[in-house]
Each structure stands twice: as structure tokens, then as C-alpha cells.
Design a protein around this nucleic acid. Structure first.
Lengths: 337, 337
DNA sequence: CTGAAAGCGCTTACAG
DNA sequence: CTGAAAGCGCTTACAG
């Protein structure tokens, strides 16, 4: 029932109750479906609500029900350029499911003081639970959330069996890809990996060793370089690696892979003729590279969806198992032909 | 005052009032600083609050003050891979300022039904205002927000003078970079551009033409290719362009630039000897390319900050001018030597 | 300077 | 099946 001015009146439960000559509790019941009403009055109320475009005030509901229908999403402030796609996809997944259940997602970019920020949200009772996209080893966030007793799930690895977590099977995937290379005759493999402080680095390394062990290859620590960050060491590391004449260079992420490719180009080393290249992560720029790069592909959106689903289940009181490991794809391309 | 169990009691205003033998209105005033209180009782109350770790229930405050201290941030669901860095930086900027002012950011990933989603948020009164990262031409979102009379600011270009907006000076930046190339002797330039439905594409094209006009070069439409998306046309477009022997290829974004580079490599065309390359956007992968690529760099975080600041000003009743155009950097690198 | 009251817009026992 | 009441935790005029 818009007025002549086109400004729509915003109805409250009370308004509707008065307008219809019933009690506002009755209206509330009609909407929520709780308690019993005659089908007739329910229909009458619902009809009217439809016409006048009534929408409940979520804030008032929150206060009355002590539930906000908000979840806090903690996202790393800085992530590698090439992980951006991952986080964004993950965010999409989370938002999608949240939306399906009528929840909203409150961003926490954990820049300087992630713990303080999330603490404020919790203490002010602005959220019901949190999803932490955790990427750093020994993040203080997890301890904090446990202490606060807020329902939460983390995206990433944990050794802590008491926390709900969802993760890609990085270890298994890296193992499988490495194994496949070995099966195909690769023997001398080099591994170049990123941030040592990042959980995923360790999982991937483990997978790499798993495959070596399984194939009876000795662990050649000389061929493994971790914590190779962008600023400095990468060029010399690549030189050192090349000097050892590997069959294949395994890059832990696409940033490293890109740098390796550039370097090889300058050094006139041909892929895959002289050396094979594999990346443990799949970015579109490398897919387009010539030769295209063999890599692993994880479904980040799915990960976000599952994380969100688990949190909502938990908020709804459904207990649930600890881990879920969605699948992955090995994308075999020209760089390992 | 934690109990023996380590579970901290959660205090309400009422609890504190009782504990201290004062009225809860008094406590409220002590906290808000509104109204006048004796310095003594104020101090006593504030002390106690400090000790017991009281935090106001934000939901109750929202209801009483009719203000949520939440802002909705609309983010495009799908963005080009290489724009991800831009959006993430922008998001950071927004979150940063929001946090400074005690606001929280509610994500809206406008996938299928952006308007419906934001409508729900508004109608349920979960947010006070919105920031729209608008990237598409003729987005229905803006019209909707105007109609709803919700305070909002958009990040991106508008012709609509009645809406608050913040944008990079894409046109000016592209003009300047193009002009500089012309000054340096470039005459025959090709332009390859992305999504025709994206506002930024048009701004950049205008800047390109501006520079041509200014230098008295005729507008050679034969050398301009828009809406070149990834799936298909790019390789043939590049061939067509190369056949015309340009001095320089201007790429509207880094995805295109990357494809061009790959293609040139395969065709044994050398940069910058045979042709110069410029990108209108700056991604780290291209910075590392050999040769490194000349490009424009925009400060996305700053853009986000300003957008958020403007919205908060508006929410606080401060009217403000319509546009702000932050600066940019021209990063001259090897590809135009 | 402090208190008592009404109100924000809902929900949820509890009566009838 | 419907209504009257109390309550969620705050804020804000209004008295005194």
C-alpha cells in the first residue's frame, strides 16, 4: 500500500496487527509458522503481508532471538598474487551457501590485529560464528576462538582434532602428481617452494616426499628449496637447481612457476625437451603458456561452500565429523610431455 | 570478574547498574558521553566497565538507535583473473576505513541476483548504506539504490551527477601514457581491449583517442579491437594486428597483454625491438616478464578507502562533492625502450 | 546531576 | 485457536 508519493510505508508487526485487528503475536506466528493458527487467519495475514511488502526487521529479530544470522569471515590480508583466485573463489562459495540459508557474511580482513577485530565482533554480538581462512602456521586466531567458545570452522589444515576444519587434500594431490611423474620415468626432481610459514607449503612438501618414499627414491634434500620468496633468492635458486640437471622442476605455486619459466626462457632451456615443469597450483596465465603447464587444480568454491555448510550445521546444533577432503584434478599438459 | 570456571560473565547495562546501585540510563550516559554526569560517578562506572570487560550489545544498540553500523559491499561475482588484485586491494581499503569508524562490512557477491540480495539487506534493515563496486555498463543496481533512497557510493564511472562516486582517472591516465608514447616517436599504435560491457574499457578507449586527437593523429579504427575475450578471438586478432606492422601494441589489461606476449614469443617477434608493448594495467607477472612491461598503476586500496570515507561522511550527514579522482603512476619499463 | 519510563520491533512462554 | 504480557539490551526525552 504505497502512498501517493511513491514512498512506501514501512510496516512493523504492530502496524499489521492493528490494520488487521489481530494481536501482533498472531502475526508473528503466521510468519514463523510456529504455534498453531487457523488456516484462515494465517492466509489472511500472509496475504496482507504480501501486499504491503512487509519485511521483518532483522535487528529486532536478532535481539529477541539472540541470533544475528551473520557469520564472520576472516580472510588473510595479504595473499600471494596467484592465490587471489583461490580466496576469491572460496569467498564466493561461502557467500553462496550463506545466502541460501539467510545468513550474511561479515568480512574481517585480518591485517594488523585480526584477533582484536574478531574479538570486537564477538563481544559486540554481531556474529553467530566464524569461518577462518587460515593460511599461517600457528595462527593465534584458532586458540582465541576456542577460548571464546564461538562456533567456528577453519579452512586449511589443523592437527587439532577438536576443531572443525575443511581442507583440500594438498598432500594427497601432490603425492599423486609426483607419483605419476615418477611412473612416467622422471627420476631427478627438484622442488621449489614458497613461504615456509604457510601451512600449505608443508602439506605439499609431505606429498612430494610421500611419492619419493613410495617409489623407493631417496630423499634428496639438495634438490628442495623452500621459503623462496619473490624478493631475492629465486633467480639464484633456479640457477643452482639447473646446475644439477633435473629431469623435472616441481613448483609449489604459480608465482614461482612463472619466474622459473621466465628464467628458463632467458637461459634458452626448453620445456619440456630439456626439463619438465609442474606446478602444484593452477592459474590461468600458466594454462595459456606455451607449452601449457601441468598442474593441480583444486575447487576452491566447493571448499568455501562446505566450510559454510558445516558452520551453519553447527549453529543449528548438528554435530558433525571433523574433516572433509574434497577432490582435486590433475591437469596433465604439455610441460610434462 | 571471571567466575572460578574461567567462563566470563557477560554483563548487560542492567547488571552493571545493579552492581553499582545506579540507574542504567546513568551507565549508558557514562559510556556514550552524552548528557552530563558528575566526573566521579562517570569514573566509577567506567572503572567498573573496564574491569568486568563489558561490551555493549551491538544488536540492542542498533535497534534503539536505528542504525546498524554495517555497510553492504557489492562486489562483482566474476572478474577477470587479473582484476582480482584490484578488487582485493579495494576491499582492503574499504575494510580498513570501515574498521576505523567502528563499521563492519557485509559482503554481497552479486552473482545471479544482486538486486534481490541487496534488497533483502536493505529491507531487513541490516545495513546503513552501501558501496557498489560497479563494473558493468547499465547496472540495474544504481537505479535500485536511488529508488530505495539508501545512502550509497559507487566505485567506478557514472554519468549520473546525482550519485556519489569515486573512480580512478582511467581516461586521463591512458591519455597520458599514450601521449608519452607518441612524444617518444610512436606513430602506428594498435589497441586491443577487453569486455565491451565493462565501463573501464570505454574510459580507457577515450583516453587513447584523446591522445591521438591531441597529437593530430587520425583515429585509425582498423587498429582498435574491443571485446576481445579470452575464448576465441584473441589469437586471430593478434595476427591481424601484427600484419599491419604497428610500432606499439597497447593492451587494455594484463590478461590480454599476457596472451599477446605468448603469441609474439611463438611468432619470434621481439619486444621491444620489433614492436613495443604497453599494458593499461599493472600486474606482478608482467612486471617480472623479460622484458618488463610498461604499464599504468592505480592505487586500488586508496580508492576503497575514499569510497568508504565518503559513505561514512554521508551517513553522518556530511554532504560532499560528487567526484574524486585519485592519481596514478605511469611505470615505464623495458617493453617501450 | 540522577532516575523512572517509554520505546526500538520482534519472539516466546503462558493464559484463556 | 488467539491474546495479553514480559522480555531481548539498549537509548533518549522527560522529570525531579
Amino acid at each position: 500500500m504505497p502512498t501517493e508519493h511513491g514512498e512506501k510505508k514501512i510496516y512493523t508487526l504492530n502496524d499489521i496487527a492493528k490494520e488487521l485487528g489481530v494481536n501482533k503475536a498472531t502475526v508473528s506466528k503466521a510468519i514463523s509458522g510456529k504455534g498453531n493458527l487457523s488456516a484462515q487467519t494465517r492466509a489472511r495475514i500472509l496475504d496482507f503481508i504480501d501486499q504491503c511488502g512487509y519485511r521483518p526487521n532483522a535487528v529486532a529479530q536478532s535481539l529477541a532471538k539472540n541470533q544475528t544470522y551473520n557469520i564472520g569471515l576472516m580472510m588473510p590480508d595479504y595473499v600471494g598474487v596467484l592465490d587471489e583466485a583461490f580466496f576469491r573463489e572460496c569467498l564466493r562459495g561461502v557467500c553462496k551457501i550463506a545466502s541460501n540459508y539467510g545468513y550474511d557474511v561479515l568480512m574481517v580482513m585480518d591485517s594488523e590485529k585480526p584477533v582484536e577485530h574478531i574479538a570486537r565482533l564477538i563481544d559486540n554480538r554481531k556474529i553467530d560464528g566464524v569461518i577462518a581462512m587460515r593460511s599461517l602456521v600457528d595462527s593465534p586466531v584458532v586458540g582465541f576462538l576456542k577460548e571464546k567458545q564461538v562456533p567456528f570452522v577453519i579452512i586449511g589444515p589443523t592437527s587439532d582434532q577438536s576443531v572443525l576444519s575443511v581442507d583440500n587434500d594438498n598432500r594427497g594431490a601432490c603425492r599423486d602428481l609426483t607419483s605419476l611423474l615418477i611412473t612416467r620415468g622422471t627420476r631427478k626432481m627438484a622442488l621449489i617452494g614458497g613461504d615456509d610459514n604457510n601451512c600449505v607449503t608443508h602439506s605439499r612438501l609431505k606429498g612430494f616426499w610421500d611419492a619419493c618414499d613410495q617409489a623407493g627414491l631417496s630423499r634428496d634434500e639438495q634438490m628442495v628449496y623452500l621459503d623462496v620468496n619473490r624478493d631475492s633468492r629465486l633467480p639464484e635458486v633456479i640457477d643452482t637447481v639447473l646446475a644439477q640437471k633435473p629431469d623435472c622442476i616441481v613448483c609449489m605455486d604459480d608465482y614461482i612457476c612463472n619466474m622459473v619459466l621466465i628464467h628458463l626462457r632467458t637461459s634458452k632451456v626448453q620445456v619440456p625437451r630439456d626439463v619438465k615443469i609442474v606446478s602444484y597450483y593452477d592459474n590461468i596465465l600458466l594454462e595459456n603458456n606455451i607449452p601449457s603447464i601441468t598442474s593441480l587444480h583444486f575447487d576452491a568454491a566447493e571448499l568455501g561452500k562446505i566450510a559454510c555448510q558445516k558452520l551453519i550445521d553447527k549453529l543449528g546444533g548438528k554435530a558433525d565429523g571433523n574433516y572433509i577432503l574434497p577432490g582435486y584434478q590433475m591437469v596433465m599438459r604439455d610441460s610434462t610431455k
